[in-house]
Amino acid sequence: MTPRSTLLMQSARPLYWMLLAAALWILLRGHNEPGGGFIGGLLAVAGSSLLAIILGIPAALRLQPLAPLPLAMVGVGLAVLSGLAGALHGLPFLTHLWTGIGLSTVMLFDLGVFFAVWGALTGYVYALVDAGETAP
């Protein structure tokens, strides 16, 4: 895998940002149109995988908000937190709340899903890519 094409290496970062932007867009519109945290998360995973394969894992890690495992845990934590908001209002756990200006705990939950998928799956992807690079 060592001789990488210059064109690929040059285009990797812009491609990553495009994929990430698409992922975020899909995440945010997910409640009303096709999309959501799972799909957005997978697109982000695709972007990170691209970076990891072309530019190496360190480069991919630099452009991710957190390392894979912490990111996944933060995602699960966000989802739990979004559920607690309803519980604090005396409603059953994971009852979602909305504010007047369109923000809601549903968004927080979906963001949690997004981070959990992004973090956990990139953890696997990096491991596999890393294993591939060290293969005999």
Binding site: G83, F109, A120, L121
Partner: peptide, 26 residues
């Protein structure tokens, strides 16, 4: 308050299941 019913099921109606699933993945 969601138009994408699939997503609404995932993040709202069956949110507890989803929480379990992302926890499993993580």
């Amino acid at each position: 308050r969601g138009r994408n019913v699939v997503n609404v099921i995932i993040v709202d109606f069956r949110a507890l299941d989803t929480l379990g699933e992302i926890a499993v993945v993580a």
